[in-house]
């Protein structure tokens, strides 16, 4: 049975979370490392932007400041996500890992299958979207959860889990956000373009996004949901998740990425100087 490393649940800052994921991703490119699964949350609440997003076009920066929301740019693609009541996962593995398929979208499908299994165990039935993200989207375009993408998970056509990837040197990092709870009003204030009819935007978000709590309440603790997710990955992929921490090299690189990249506005706000961490 294939062994994966599982980094146990932790609540960290946006800067620490992104630096840790990128450090694992970069070190995996240099070594014959086993795949890694992380499940985590964000404190303080934060907005993560996709690699190519224009911060000031997508995020209400002054509202974020008022709400004490950190802003960080992800190494992965996709759209902006508010991380306040969510669980984020990161999977880092070689592209040629036999558990995954040759096509890029196959990775999304397989990992979404693991999340769907966990949600099913919680009593939530999901279906997978098959539409790809395109450049033609207009209103609500900033918010990741307002537009289903490839193999993302929906409950009655409303998105509950979104995901995004980066690939380099034969390794992929996939991020996904599983909503525990959803506040369309706050999301609209922080994420969406501040033009058009705000009430309609909120209504559209309400119609297109859902959360775990909306379906089953908050009876399951975060620890319990993490445990179910962990078991679902093991069951669906036929792997054993073994708890572990960062290697020394990953820890050193994480510290460097926090200092030089993820607490640097040049990266987070301007998206400049991609500082690849190599």
């Amino acid at each position: 049975m294939m062994i994966w490393r599982f980094i146990p649940f932790k609540q960290l800052s946006a800067f620490e979370n992104m630096a840790m994921d990128e450090a694992i991703f970069r070190e995996n490119q240099r070594r014959d490392s086993p795949p890694t699964l992380r499940i985590y949350s964000w404190s303080p609440p934060s907005i993560s932007l996709g690699y190519f997003q224009e911060t000031r076009n997508e995020v209400n920066v002054s509202a974020c400041s008022r709400y004490h929301i950190d802003i960080v740019r992800r190494p992965t693609g996709g759209k902006a996500v508010l991380h306040e009541h969510d669980l984020t996962y990161a999977v880092i593995a070689k592209e040629h890992n036999p558990l995954f398929t040759p096509d890029i979208l196959g990775t999304y499908r397989i990992i979404s299958g693991c999340i769907a299994e966990a949600l099913s165990e919680l009593g939530i039935t999901t279906e997978m979207s098959v539409d790809g993200r395109t450049s033609g989207e207009e209103s609500l375009k900033a918010a990741c959860f307002s537009s289903p993408s490839h193999y993302e998970l929906l409950v009655n056509k409303r998105k509950i889990c979104g995901s995004a990837q980066v690939r380099s040197r034969g390794v992929f990092l996939q991020h996904g956000s599983i909503l525990l709870d959803f506040d369309p009003v706050k999301t609209c204030t922080l994420l969406l373009p501040q033009h058009g009819n705000r009430e309609k935007q909120i209504e559209k978000l309400r119609e297109s996004v859902t959360s775990i709590y909306e379906h089953i309440g908050s009876e399951f603790s975060t620890a319990k949901i993490c445990h179910i997710l962990q078991r679902s990955f093991e069951k669906k992929l036929g792997i054993e998740l073994v708890e572990g921490g960062l290697t020394a090299a990953e820890g050193i690189l994480m510290a460097r990425l926090i200092k030089d990249k993820y607490t640097n506005d040049k990266w987070n706000i301007e998206g400049k100087g991609a500082l690849h961490g190599s």
Binding site: F52, I104, G132, T134, H150, V166, S168
Partner: peptide, 11 residues
């Protein structure tokens, strides 16, 4: 360089 496609980000 870096590219974003409908499937993700690629170095």
């Amino acid at each position: 360089g870096t590219i974003e496609s409908a499937k993700g980000v690629f170095e």
